[in-house]
Write a protein that binds this DNA or RNA. Structure first.
Length: 1141
RNA sequence: GGGCGAUUAGCUCAGCUGGUUAGAGCGUCCCUCUGAUAAGGGGAAGGUCUCAAGUUCGAAUCUUGAAUCGCCCA
């Protein structure tokens, strides 16, 4: 007996039962045992998920792919590592801990204590990892998961008692250490399970990598002007500003007058003869420059003009009587206020070398900087006008204010022109001393002060509001500033080309990924690897007082080199503040080296995992077995310059090899309207909520059927559609099978009829199954999920809406016949194959089906682990095989049959005669080959369309006319421009004559051109007015004449339908026998009498009486067209079992 | 500003190397079938295939330009 199956199942609840089943039976561990000795390996490396928050439905997308292919290859017998990863170090964790604690600045962290702060960061990671582990398990993701409670225990103790010695148990072995030490060893071979990028091994492996870079001379300390978050007080690397980092912001835009002190009028083309005079009589000549970052004006050094641009010279008389002349881009005169007169024009190139009076040359800091510059260069400093190709006139005045200490391009230009640099801000974005009223103020708070200062000096021209895209901190949302700082870099001069070679060897899905990555490599700057923060990789760079530095490559090396501070560090993970204590001595100079206080870029942490988690330093043979990965997958946004990039960079440096053979990237998850999901916008869907409401299988299916390069519009409507169109039909097919198999006491152990004894439908669905297996297998091997999902959807539709629907009656009879056995055997084979086929995609549903169909058990009732390969996930994936010719023919034949049926329904609709009304015959026009097929399937067609006979029409012209068309593909080349004429001429010939010739394989003469028979296409057009339907090859017609017998039969069928509705509404069981009483109007009563056997059979009425019943469990009056019917039904008890034929 | 991609029905998208009447799913409406099915079937409405020019016997498809929208990079 199979476990009874309800047709209305709570899928999420059922999934929780399956999770319990897997847990109790240790199903995942059984899988690992079964695969442990396999020689085949599928190497997957998990891109670490940021362990900072609960996971979202977007994470579940990628994790579904990861699980899909791990399960698929497991079913194909490939051994695997099953290691999940957590990304642990970096600013994002710090920001959240700061938020929790209410910290505003780095000073708050310092006064709280770096040591305690780091522990809080570790705690947050461990707690988030515990939560994400639970959620991933809920998704059905099979991995070597940690026990969430153990992670939470560690999270608790890492803060309360980090130095307590505790014991963790693994496979009966006890592993001892302090809490801090054990946390640093998570994911190692000894402790196993998920890897954590904060682990000792991960950090030391990065040290090794950086040392290798240093050996090649690529590590350097660079001064640069970089985007800087004033809240986090750290630089934001180019890698980190993604599109999310840009937000609309309204800033004050200033137009400022820069008074020229030296210029040359030779190249000015004067507009008129008086223009030059007017120019010379003005009170002052100014360059007009425009900026949206007024805080940088105090650092102004130069002005830049475009060498090719034309500049206008304009004269304005101001209210206070001042007469001024201005230089500004000829296309930018709209920026002027008030009336003006154009005096002339000059090309930008001629303005090079002009000088102007610095706008804030009176500020102590500016005086000081310029003084130093003059001392160094031995000459007086003048603010210059320089040329810059990048200057445009689309914004501002075509003259660019340049502050080499406060903007990245400015910095490069300043360097090229050997200009002084004024760096006005400290790390919190506050003006340094020496800027008078600006000092002590925040960069974003000074527009009013700047305006006042400009006005006081006479340099103010205009202020407006300006809305633009501005870079914000990707973690805390604060608008960025630019600061000149020392940071550590890896030079990309050589590495980028080596990486490009490695990129070429990777299979990128979708293919454009390769170009994206190459494009990034071509354009990227040197890799900034430092961050002036606390929680992260301790950069293993020790600096000496003379400015030289060394990179330390391992714990052992540091220990050997340490001259102080080792005792304080030993026993701790390589994090701040302990590692900072260790000093080393320079072998030659004897100077004492101190670690730079910076921490590392977090993408180093994630990029190294192809080495650190595969025991590269400790067990090279193991690494060789699992490297490179066969497959990795992540969502692309950001990853071309983040994880994919770091992974490739580090593997290129260490081994010049690709870290993975295939990279699958996929797009972004959005809400149902296509908007990004944001908690604050209220359109975010929590993973737990989605899993509870829709179920993990449904979610997984939505992900799997999604195109990789399209954004996924995620929401409950989409989920519900999956449930309705995929899950429910499949479930119903399964529930149908179980219901009838139980009723018939059918068991898989009974002998099953050989293929020859199965009918056409059976063989057809088995061929379709094989075809589907082939297609799914092929797609999954190519890492192409969507076609696999779509093939299964089509198959489920074929199964439910054709195979089962057409086979229903075979399951109804009370006798067990060979045909019935064939039907059970076939449906059983299909469902068990299907369960294995969908197992990697819908692990829950497939498990429920498998346990019941194969083991006749309910997952919730299993308490101990069964023997052997008990789970569907322990089964081999269905084997692909080529279809033989007869199977192929059967597939083609069924297609034709279904076409005839579709056309028949179409004709029915036109005739307005319901399907319930039997008709005498269906006439068909079809070619010989199709006729054979139709003949073979005629019972099915007759039944489906409710006609008594199917016949082929000899005189097809009674039903159809013809359309004859030239075969354009063939004739286009042959005829060229005479084609339209031939086409018209052909359409004017008598189609019947053309058809006659073509069918006789005779050529056709058209307008002097001879067309071969195969160059003419003949279409059959149904004649209008008949109940006729057709496509171009097959035409069907219904004979709608009704005899009294047919009408009676139709009425009888109506009666059956009414009685069965009544049975249903009385909630009778399918097999309940009834006693039926009725009264009816004369014509109807006669019909019922004539078809009494039929009515009784179809309604399971053991008695049928033409009289009212005294009492009944259900009764109803009906109107059928003009006729009246009243029906009473009563339970008939099963005493008459066997009467039903 | 540069690069890549897109623009087809109300919505989400197919339409391969040019070919005859441009399709599907969802949604809407009508009809219909039904003792596994909250399903299924038939039909209707809905498209100047973003615009313009070109190549061609023939363009949703190829070329060029424009517009708009993404993504990536400046």
């Amino acid at each position: 007996m199979f476990q009874p199956v309800s047709s209305s199942t709570d899928f999420p609840a059922q999934e929780r039962q399956v999770l319990e089943f897997w847990k109790r039976t240790r199903a995942f561990f059984r899988l690992r045992e079964l695969l442990a000795h396999s020689q085949k390996r599928f190497a997957f490396i998990d891109g670490p998920i940021t362990a900072n928050n609960p996971m979202g439905v977007h994470h579940a997308w990628g994790r579904t792919y990861k699980d899909l292919w791990q399960r698929f290859f497991a079913m194909k017998g490939y051994n695997q590592r099953w290691q999940n990863g957590f990304d642990c170090q970096g600013l994002w964790v710090e920001v959240n801990v700061e938020k929790d604690r209410g910290f505003q600045t780095k000073r708050d962290i310092e006064s709280f204590g770096v040591e305690k702060f780091i522990l809080l960061c570790k705690q947050r990671v461990l707690n988030s990892a515990a939560m994400q582990t639970e959620q991933s398990i809920r998704l059905g993701y099979w991995m070597d998961w940690d026990d969430p409670d153990e992670l939470r225990m560690l999270a608790e103790k890492i803060v309360t008692s980090p130095q307590e010695v505790i014991t963790l148990r693994r496979d009966g072995k006890a592993i001892q250490g302090t809490v801090e030490q054990l946390v640093g060893q998570l994911g190692t071979p000894e402790l196993g399970r998920s890897y954590f990028t904060f682990s000792d091994e991960n950090n030391y492996q990065i040290w090794h990598f950086l040392k290798r870079c240093h050996e090649r001379g690529w590590i350097y300390r660079g001064e640069d002007v970089i985007p800087w978050c004033p809240r986090c007080a750290t630089g934001i690397s180019q890698h980190e500003i993604d599109t999310e980092g840009y937000k609309d912001r309204e800033d004050p835009a200033f137009t400022v007058r820069f008074k020229l002190t030296h210029f040359d009028t030779t190249h000015i083309q004067w507009a008129s003869s008086e223009a030059r005079e007017k120019f010379l009589h003005a009170h002052g000549a100014f360059m007009l420059a425009w900026t949206t970052t007024p805080w940088t004006l105090a650092a102004n050094i130069m002005l830049a003009v475009g060498p090719q641009l034309r500049y206008s010279v304009v004269r304005q008389v101001h209210k206070d009587g001042e007469i001024a002349v201005y230089f500004l881009g000829a296309q930018t005169l709209r920026t002027l206020r008030g009336e003006y007169e154009v005096l002339g024009e000059i090309q930008g190139v001629h303005m090079a070398g002009w000088t102007y009076q610095g706008i804030f040359d009176d500020l102590p800091a500016v005086i000081d900087t310029i003084k130093k510059w003059e001392d160094l260069h031995g000459k007086t400093f003048r603010h210059p006008v320089i040329l810059w190709e990048e200057v445009s006139e689309t914004e501002g005045t075509g003259i660019v204010h340049n502050a080499p200490g406060a903007g990245p391009e400015d910095y490069q230009l300043g360097k090229a022109h050997s200009m002084p640099r004024i760096a006005p801000l400290d790390e919190n974005g506050i003006y340094l001393p020496g800027f008078n009223e600006l000092s002590g103020k925040h960069a974003h708070d000074v527009p009013d002060i700047v305006e006042a200062m400009l006005r006081a000096r006479g340099w103010f021209y205009r202020r407006e509001k300006y809305l633009h895209r501005y870079a914000h901190c990707w973690r805390c949302g604060t608008p960025l500033v630019y600061r000149m700082v020392d940071e550590w870099y890896i030079s990309m001069d050589e590495l980028r080309y080596e990486m490009m070679e490695v990129v070429q060897r990777i299979n990128w899905i979708p293919a454009f990924g390769k170009e994206r990555e190459l494009d990034w490599l071509r354009n990227m700057h040197d890799w900034m690897i430092s961050k002036k923060r606390y929680w992260g990789l301790a950069l293993p760079i020790w600096e000496y007082p003379d400015g030289t530095f060394e990179v330390i490559g391992s714990y052992e090396e540091l220990k050997a080199r340490a001259v102080a501070g080792w005792e304080e560090f030993e026993g701790h993970t390589p994090h701040r503040p302990y590692v900072d204590k260790v000093k080393i001595r320079h072998p030659q100079t004897g100077l004492i080296g101190t670690r730079v206080s910076d921490v590392g870029n977090p993408w180093l942490d994630a990029g190294i995992v192809a080495y650190s988690t595969l025991r590269y330093r400790t067990d090279r043979a193991y690494w060789e077995q699992w490297f490179p990965a066969d497959f990795i997958t992540e969502s692309f946004p950001g990853q071309f310059r983040n994880w994919f990039y770091a992974l490739i960079a580090m593997s290129t440096v260490l081994e010049k090899r690709e870290p993975t053979r295939t990279i699958l990237g996929f797009a972004t998850l959005l809400d149902e309207k296509g908007e990004p999901m944001h908690k604050s916008k209220g359109n975010a869907i929590e993973f737990n909520e989605a899993a509870d409401r829709a179920g993990a299988d449904v979610m997984r299916w939505l992900y799997i059927r999604q195109r990789y390069d399209d954004n996924l519009l995620f929401g409950y409507n989409a989920l519900n559609e999956v449930r309705r169109t995929v899950i429910l039909p499949l479930w119903n097919a399964y529930s149908f099978f179980v219901t009838y198999a139980n009723a018939d006491d059918w068991s898989p152990h009974q002998e099953r009829p050989s293929l020859e004894l199965r009918n056409q439908l059976d063989r057809w669905i088995l061929a379709r199954m094989a075809e589907t297996v082939n297609s799914v297998h092929q797609s999954l091997m190519a890492f192409d999920a969507r076609p696999a999902a779509l093939a299964i959807e089509v198959f489920i539709d074929d199964l439910t809406n054709w195979y089962i629907r057409r086979s229903r009656e075979r399951f109804w009879g009370s006798q067990m016949t060979t045909d019935k056995r064939a039907a059970y055997a076939t449906l059983y084979e299909v469902l068990t194959t299907l369960a294995r086929l969908i197992a990697p995609m819908m692990p829950f549903l497939s498990e429920v089906m498998w346990q019941n169909l194969v083991h006749q058990r309910d997952v919730s009732a299993v308490t101990t682990a069964p023997e052997g390969a008990f789970s569907v996930h322990h089964q081999p994936f269905p084997e692909p095989r080529p279809l033989d010719e007869s199977e192929q023919n059967l597939l083609d034949a069924m297609q034709i049959t279904r076409l005839v049926v579709t056309l028949g329904h179409n004709a029915r609709a036109q005739s307005k005669v319901k399907v319930r009304q039997p008709l005498n015959k269906l006439s068909i026009v079809a070619d010989a080959q199709a006729q054979t097929v139709i003949l073979a399937q005629q019972e099915l067609i007759k039944d489906e369309l409710n006609v008594k006979a199917v016949e082929f029409v000899t005189d097809e012209q009674s039903l159809v006319t013809y359309r004859v068309l030239p075969d354009l593909k063939k004739l286009g080349k042959k005829l060229g421009e005479t084609l339209p004429r031939v086409r018209t001429a052909l359409s004017q010939l008598d189609p019947v004559q053309v058809v006659t010739r073509v069918r006789a394989q005779q050529p056709v003469e058209v307008d002097g051109v001879t067309l071969q028979p195969d160059e003419v296409i003949v279409q059959r057009i149904p004649k209008p007015g008949l109940s006729v339907a057709g496509d171009n090859s097959i035409v069907v017609a219904l004979d709608t004449t009704l005899s009294e017998a047919l009408i009676q039969e139709g009425l009888a069928r109506e009666v059956v339908r009414r009685i069965n509705d009544l049975r249903k509404s009385a909630q009778l069981h399918i097999s309940d026998r009834i006693i039926t009483h009725f009264t009816a109007s004369p014509r109807l009563a006669e019909a019922i009498r004539a078809f009494a056997d039929y009515v009784q059979r179809e309604t399971l009425s053991i008695e049928l009486h033409e009289s009212p019943a005294a009492q009944s469990i259900a009764s109803e009056q009906f109107h059928i067209d003009e006729e009246q019917l009243t029906v009473w039904i009563n339970l008939g008890h099963a005493i008459m079992e066997g009467q039903r034929s």
